[in-house]
Amino acid sequence: MRRSRSNLPFTMNIVVPSRFQPSFGSLRPAAGTSFALINQIPVLFSDDEQKLFELNDVAAFIWCSMQNAVPLETISDQLVNRGLSSTGARESLRDALNQWLGAGLIVPHIDTLDFAFCTVVGQRLVQIRASDARVLDHLRSIFIATTAPKADAETIFAVHRAGSTSIVIHEGRKVLSCGTNELAPTFKAYITEQLLLTGDTRNVVFHAAAVVSGDRALLISAPPGTGKSTLTMHLLNADFGYAADDIVIIGPDGAIQGAPFAPTLKSASWSLVSGFRPDVYSVTIHNRLDGQAVRYLNVEADVYKGPIRVNWIVFLERTSGGTPPTLRALSELDTIRRIVGASFATHGKLTTESFHTLKKVASEARSFVLRYAEAEGATNKLIELCNGKL
């Protein structure tokens, strides 16, 4: 397959309709991919990429054979009959498939539910199918709880591993591909953007952890690297309930609901929680695209289910070692300013209604800035706050 050409003319003489989706083995044309002859030059058109990909004669033969459901082994034999060596035929077939997979022109097809699970993201039941157990374990690790696959899932993702690369397919299209060791955090970021952030327009998504004392939520907001996840794990060890590690959804009534993700711990925090969570060193290491190595911890036993009223909002500020933790109360106005700075609305716009939602939360909760150096001291200070001693 030659390089893509995005400026070729669109006078297509012979076109296979994009709705024509024949299956060839475990691979099939991606939705929106069409074959055409333009001035007798074979090309593929990608609806997603808005590009034409010019094919050489061998690649065109392979594509047309696959569209006719010819098995890959037979295509390789036919290439030999057309003059290629056995090695050359296999390499040509392999190279074409790899390039088409990488460009999203063909996608793997996974029908089996042998490696599959369901989970709830936002208000949607999501089914995830994987090509093998390793991919399934990577994906399962990011969620708090999963169930057996269900027929009524609203959204279905299929994830296929090809060597060290994993390809995620949704509705017949490749939506992302990455190294398998990067799959979990990359997929988490994708479904956060595509599912969590496209819900009720009245909702506000607040970057904060949420733990529960009694039936009231403590929200902890902080910039990356401030120790929010480490502090969350210390609070769970002190018998708080778990609602969220990084994202909470504030509904129109002011109640919050956590995102369905397990706590994400960066490498700097592993030793800080290993005393009470020694399993931190036994779970899989995942690589984020920003270079951070992370692990996901199972907290299903600590999860508080259902909507929760917010009683306390704490914004973290780290100080140098040896400084005792201090809590400074915030006014309602300062609280709203800080929440707005750390929030985003579904569909990208904070409406008047969602602003009043934030005002309601800020007026009903006590808000503070917590300046601290060590997680243990900060945990004790927050326990005192939630126990009414401050």
Rank of each mutant, 00 (worst) to 15 (best):
V211I: 14
D246Y: 14
T186M: 00
G214E: 12
A255D: 09
E193F: 02
A209Y: 07
A255C: 08
S229E: 10
L235W: 05
A222H: 04
T264P: 01
A209P: 05
T192Y: 08
R173L: 11
N237Q: 14
L265K: 06
P260V: 07
Y190I: 03
L272Q: 10
L197R: 15
V175L: 01
R216S: 10
F187I: 06
L218W: 11
Q257C: 01
E171K: 05
L265T: 03
L231E: 05
L236Y: 07
F261N: 03
H207F: 10
P260K: 09
W270S: 06
S229V: 08
T186A: 10
A255H: 11
P224V: 13
L197H: 12
A238G: 04
I249L: 13
L231G: 03
E193G: 00
I191C: 00
A268P: 01
H170C: 14
G254P: 02
S177D: 15
G227S: 06
V205K: 04
L195H: 11
K174Q: 15
T226Y: 14
I256V: 15
S229K: 12
V212W: 13
L219K: 03
A209M: 09
D200A: 14
L235M: 13
R216V: 05
K266L: 04
F240P: 03
S271Y: 02
D246I: 09
G254Q: 03
H234W: 15
P224H: 00
R173S: 12
G241W: 09
P263A: 04
T198E: 06
L197G: 12
I256Y: 02
L231M: 09
L196N: 12
G227P: 12
A217F: 10
L236T: 14
F261D: 00
A208N: 01
S221L: 08
Y242N: 04
G214F: 10
T180Q: 03
G199L: 10
L218V: 10
P252S: 15
S269M: 02
A189I: 03
Q194N: 13
L195W: 10
E193H: 15
F261L: 06
A262K: 06
A210I: 07
S221E: 01
D239F: 12
L231H: 09
G225Q: 10
A217Q: 13
G241P: 10
A262H: 07
G179A: 12
Q194K: 14
K188G: 01
L219G: 01
